[in-house]
Simulated scan of single mutants.
Amino acid sequence: MQKQQPSLVIFTDGAARGNPGPGGYGIVMFWGPHKKELSAGYRLTTNNRMELMAVIVALQSLTKKNLPVTIYTDSQYVVNSVEKKWLDNWIKTDFKGGKKNKDLWLKYYQLSKQYNVKFKWVKGHAENEWNNRCDELATAAADGNNLLIDEGYENSINIMQ
């Protein structure tokens, strides 16, 4: 009899103080009895970018490929873009019409091919303990020192100026 692997469960959240403004992401990952938390802050970004960045960083931190992964997020932007196949259409049309966050969506798309990713939406700032913990991590990161540079975002606004 083959031993069943524990399921990989990830909670993510993104935050921005102003939109755009300083931002951060928070991640809580569960693999069987193991729990890992990740977060980082950026000096200038948007909420949607941080929501998506949390998912990307979580997937980048995995060491085993081809795992079933369930990601819980309060971002309808992320859930709907993937689950309703909006992202597939954006890629086909090369993000025509000014769809935002192309750099991050392409990064997510490449990563997602290595896993069986399923998204589940959870209500933000509600009863979900792990979504609330991710929010704490994300906002603390946004309010922290030594903020990173969201090069994709800052380069895009420099081009428009």
Score class of each variant (00 low, 15 high):
Q76R: 14
K64V: 15
K65Y: 11
G97Y: 03
G26Y: 01
G14T: 10
Y153C: 12
F11K: 08
N146K: 14
N101F: 09
S81M: 02
E37W: 00
T12C: 15
L44Y: 08
K36P: 00
E83M: 11
T46G: 07
W130H: 14
A140C: 01
D135T: 06
K99E: 11
K65H: 12
K100E: 13
I71Y: 04
A54V: 11
M160R: 15
I56R: 01
E83G: 03
I27R: 02
G97N: 03
L87S: 04
R49P: 02
K3S: 14
I91G: 01
R49F: 04
V28A: 09
K64T: 14
H34C: 12
E51D: 10
K64C: 12
E127M: 03
V117N: 03
Q5C: 12
A40H: 08
P22Y: 02
K96G: 08
S112K: 13
V122W: 00
D94E: 14
N132W: 00
A126E: 08
K35Y: 01
Q76D: 12
A126V: 03
R17M: 11
T63Y: 09
L59F: 10
Y153Q: 05
G97P: 01
V57A: 07
T139P: 02
V28H: 07
G41M: 06
I159H: 13
N145L: 14
M50R: 10
M160W: 07
G98W: 06
Q2I: 12
K64I: 15
R133H: 11
D88A: 15
N101R: 05
G124D: 03
W121K: 14
L111R: 05
M29Q: 14
T70V: 14
V78K: 00
K113L: 12
W105K: 11
G98Y: 02
L87H: 01
W105D: 07
